[in-house]
Amino acid sequence: MKIECFIDGKRTLLMVNSNKPLNLILMEDVESSQFNARCRDGNCGNCVVLMNDEAVLSCLIPAFRLRDAHITTFEGYKKTRFWHDLERAYEDAKSQPCPLCFPSKTLIFESLLRTIGKPSEGEDNDSSLEDETIIKELSLNRCTCLDARELVEIFNSAANYRRRRRVRRN
């Protein structure tokens, strides 16, 4: 099956089986160097990517859903200005995820940061998220390298930087 999509901003033509999971496509067909998640059952949470600006588990996305989709892997995300908020938050908290889950946890943090103050979100349209919500959302990634307190600290710090960025833009 021929599928055209955008991976990290680059138009990419894929020739893959229509039901091939996105994580395998990224590893085998696109050869994304930093992408290495082979669980294929949504249980490790190490394969998070952004699809049309929403975080998704790439092992649960089949190839046929990729038509014209914009996929951002962690490599692509690092080139955006949003990455600096989380980079500084990791420095402030003096802790960061282990190398195995670093890309995935970072993208989950990013997806949470995007929900703050988003009026269309319904559930969490407050200017901040509850600690419980942050911990629960990050539990998607089963790596236990960071404890709950550190996760909340990193998120709150990144959220402050993100708010300041929005104020400056406005």
Partner: peptide, 22 residues
């Protein structure tokens, strides 16, 4: 949504792949 089908260990690769109606 595909979350269940794709979370099966034998989802891919498999020899008996049926057509899909999305």
């Amino acid at each position: 949504g595909g979350t269940y089908i794709m979370s099966r260990h034998d989802y891919y690769p498999t020899k008996d792949s049926y057509d899909i109606i999305s």
